[in-house]
Amino acid sequence: MSAPEMTPNAKPILEICDLGKSFGSVRVLHDISLKVMPSQVVVIIGPSGSGKSTLLRCCNCLEIPQQGSITICDKDIVTDGVVLPEKELNALRMHVGMVFQSFNLFPHLTVLDNVAVGPRRLRGMKKADAEDLARAQLAKVGLAERADAYPAQLSGGQKQRVAIARALAMEPRVMLFDEPTSALDPELVGEVLQVMKALASEGMTMIVVTHEMGFARDVADEVLVMDGTVIEHGKPEEIFSNPQHPRTQSFLQSILSPG
């Protein structure tokens, strides 16, 4: 799975330059720049409405930013609102895995088919090969034995692990996680974080929006604090123990001592 082999002298996998995004007249993101190196894990935190999801969604052009550019694996996917042609964009999206807060599994397909459908239809694999790959990915997230179940028969934690396996089956170069544990009952959060930790230690490049500070502390190489723009960034220990920006301080306070 390790991504870096194509970039021997460590070029960034994902690079964002002076990004700006508005919805109508509301400016949601401005002046965001970010470099993500191979195998790096970047955690994004910030208050609700600060544009974390929007930033992630820009990274695979689910939203189109009007200003700035995003480069993934040396390809400019969007520059000042101009997006890569449809075909190339689709090809590039295969290398960018996305995991959603609400799982978005395909309810009409079995767990196995959820994971196999991408390799089968998009990577041109034969049915048997795609299913082998899917089984391997399911084993990796600890769900090999649920291959024949339908998503509706799984717990939230299991659903999210299937969603991770589905993304992994495309052999992505980078994975985007948008609050992957926020929709889960507390007792199910751990199993998903564990899978993500394992991925990180295998060298997967990851951008993770999360409020799980423990995960950020253990796994992140860098933490970004967002509020429409990146108001602060650094190593997790710096951000958590010595936040500089007053808004970071109040945000951390609000999530570390809720209520």
């Binding site: 695979n60 689910l62 449809e86 689709n90 090809a91 590039l92 999206r93 295969m94 960018v96 996305m98 959603f100 609400s102 978005n104 599994l105 395909f106 991408g118 239809r121 998009l122 589905r166 993304a167 495309m170």
Partner: peptide, 16 residues
């Protein structure tokens, strides 16, 4: 809508 987004973010075209 999440179904379309999940499909598109895997790299499927709109038609697929």
């Amino acid at each position: 809508n999440g179904q379309m987004e999940a499909a598109r973010s895997m790299g499927m075209s709109y038609g697929q």
